[in-house]
Design a protein around this nucleic acid. Structure first.
Length: 199
DNA sequence: TACGTGATCACG
DNA sequence: GTGATCACGTAA
C-alpha cells in the first residue's frame, strides 16, 4: 500500500521518523523503478536549531512550509542531494531526512548510477541513496504519492532490540539541540527482508 | 583526518 | 557583491 498524505500530516515528526523505518522508498525516474527499505531516518522540527526552517522561510526551505507529504530536496556541500519528506500541516515546517536504504528493487540500475561494482552499501548514506534512486532537486516539492516518487508500507515490524535511537549526525551548529535523540536506525535488516512479498 | 564543491544566507 | 558555512563521501 502506498502511504497516503495523511501519514505525513501528524504533528509529531519524531514519531513519523520512527514509523518510516521499514517502509519502502521507490522512484520511477528515467523509466526505471528503483527502491529500498528505509533503515535510517532523522526528524527535524522548525522549533529546534538543527532544522533548516528554524530561522524562518528562505528560498531553499520554502517547500518545508507547505502541507506535509511532499519531498524536500536540497544540495549539501555543493555535491550531495539530500532527500527529506515534509511533514505536519502547512506553516509547521517539519521534515524527516532519509539517511540510508537497504537496496531492494532495480539494484542493477542503482549500481550503475553510483558506479558501484557490488550491491553492498550502494544506498548507505543520505547523499548516496539519492544518487542511487536518481533523486535530485527536480523532485523538490513533488508529492510523495506521485508516479515518480512514493513510499510503500509492506507492514514490516521490528523487534525493539533492532531499533536504534541516537543523536543526529553532522549538526554541531545546532548547539544543545544536537543532542536530541531524533535519529532512528534498523540493524539486522537481513532478518526481516525475506518477509517482504509482492514487490 | 583532510578536503572538494557550489548553493545558500546573512552581512553590507 | 562577498565570504563563511554546510543535515557528505572518499581517499588515506
Amino acid at each position: 500500500m502506498k502511504l497516503p498524505q495523511t501519514f505525513f500530516l501528524n504533528s509529531n515528526v519524531v514519531a513519523i521518523a520512527r514509523k518510516m523505518l521499514g517502509k519502502i522508498l521507490f522512484t520511477k525516474i528515467d523509466n526505471q523503478i528503483t527502491g529500498g527499505i528505509i533503515v535510517e531516518t532523522e526528524a527535524y522540527s522548525y522549533k529546534e536549531k538543527g532544522c533548516h526552517a528554524y530561522k524562518g522561510m528562505t528560498k531553499r526551505n520554502e517547500v518545508m512550509f507547505r502541507e506535509g507529504g511532499i519531498a524536500y530536496v536540497y544540495l549539501c556541500y555543493g555535491v550531495h542531494e539530500m532527500f527529506n519528506v515534509v511533514t505536519n500541516k502547512k506553516g509547521k515546517a517539519d521534515a524527516v531526512l532519509v539517511r540510508a536504504l537497504e537496496p531492494l528493487v532495480g539494484i542493477e540500475q542503482m549500481m550503475k548510477r553510483v558506479n558501484a561494482k557490488t550491491e553492498r552499501k550502494i544506498a548507505s548514506g543520505p547523499g548516496k541513496l539519492t544518487k542511487a534512486l536518481g533523486i535530485d532537486r527536480r523532485c523538490n516539492g513533488k508529492e510523495m504519492n506521485s508516479v515518480e516518487i512514493w513510499i510503500e508500507d509492506k507492514n514490516l515490524k521490528f523487534k525493539n532490540r533492532d531499533i536504534g535511537c541516537s543523536p543526529r549526525i553532522g549538526i554541531d551548529y545546532a548547539g544543545d539541540d544536537a543532542w536530541l535523540p531524533w535519529r532512528f536506525t534498523i540493524s539486522n535488516i537481513n532478518d526481516y527482508k525475506f518477509k517482504i512479498q509482492n514487490l
